[in-house]
Design a protein around this nucleic acid. Structure first.
Lengths: 209, 209
DNA sequence: CGTTTATCTTGCAGTCACTGCATAAATAGC
DNA sequence: GCTATTTATGCAGTGACTGCAAGATAAACG
């Protein structure tokens, strides 16, 4: 019953903050204003969120679920990069249950360069974990560091690339003001990715002229 | 003669700041400490650098020179992504003339996650310009939006990928404490990139089994 | 129900980055 | 040497954020 109260106050503060930032802009919105609207003291605000940024960005870092991680690791397709992008983006998009709130968050973030870069940085923070995922998949496929000496680097670069594509997909989705499902944008992004990287799931004959 | 004085005071402040941050850590280093060591008032410090971050990161954003940009645009090779990575990374690395200072800057940045993400964000800030470069190259090669409707998206995703790889290359170079030349790291990174993306500059016969 | 105990909330004082404004110093041009 | 423009500084203030300690609230237990 205590947890319930915690959840409601948290939601109240978040809504107040996002709404105010949407109205006056992020930088013009002071923490005191948020506290007034959220009916808590400033100290309580910081107990909940720790910073003004986090109340807009959302507190939970967007990590894939355990099930999604396992699916990725056991995937046998040759397109590791595409699969990873899909896994990350799915987690990232499914992370806020309230669609209207999500839309407002995004609007604020898009109008505030500082927040936009922080969000990218947040995805990048999970890079180490993504590298582990890729290495696990390699291992599941029988590849290890004795056969490929720079396997670690290969995993790292795949993650770097994936973060780049996710960045692209998220930007594209939100630049169109959330038109279409995330899955559509994601699929077209991966298609584009394959075209750009000359990736061929099955060796095509027409590549020989 | 005025410009000379400006340059020396700027250099003095920068050295003081980096040295202090290296000794006490970035967060424990206050602006007042830097001002004392740099023999300027706090107000002057902010006139020069505008923020505590920028005195560590270096004030100039790492953009390719005009010549390098032209070289990229007129490049005819099929590997747009590799060429772009090379262009960006070269600009990024050649940007600080003082090698010792650069090394110290990097050490501080590596120890301070906040600075590390800001630096990535700074590269990403130039994304629009990179997109223009890629589009210009496409145009030089006779591709335009009538032949490929989503050419703009293709350019954007190439830039996103390139930023990812640059991120990887920079991290790798500095994680080895600047062992080897940047070019070596860059070349091996691009090689890795090609392997990961299954990119083949010339259609190889062995891709057909 | 009352008491104890853990948790939550708040106020307060203080630190630090950063800004606007006004003034003083330095230098450039004449 | 005098004036105009740039540059340096002081000062007062704002806003984010922290540590601490005391008060309010709810849980747990007898």
């Amino acid at each position: 019953m205590r947890a319930r109260k915690r959840a409601t106050t948290q939601a109240t503060i978040e809504r107040a903050a996002v709404s105010l930032a949407l109205k006056h802009g992020y930088e013009k919105t002071t923490v005191d204003m948020i506290c007034d609207a959220g009916m808590v003291s400033q100290r309580t605000f910081f107990n909940y969120f720790g910073s003004k940024e986090r109340v807009i960005l959302g507190s939970a870092p967007p990590m894939p679920t355990n099930a999604a991680t396992a699916d990725f690791i056991n995937g046998t397709g040759p397109d590791v990069l595409g699969d990873l992008v899909e896994t990350i983006t799915t987690a990232f998009v499914n992370h806020e249950p309230d669609a209207a709130l999500l839309r407002s968050r995004r609007a604020v973030i898009r109008q505030t360069p500082e927040l936009a870069s922080k969000e990218i940085a947040r995805i990048a923070e999970a890079e180490d974990q993504f590298v582990h995922m890729v290495l696990a998949r390699f291992q599941a496929q029988g590849r290890n560091e004795t056969t490929t000496p720079d396997l670690q680097d290969e995993a790292k670069i795949i993650v770097s690339l994936a973060v780049g594509v996710v960045h692209f997909a998220v930007r594209k989705w939100f630049s169109s003001d959330l038109v279409g499902t995330p899955q559509e944008v994601l699929r077209s992004s991966i298609q584009l990715l394959r075209r750009v990287t000359h990736f061929h799931p099955l060796p095509p004959t027409e590549s020989i002229q």
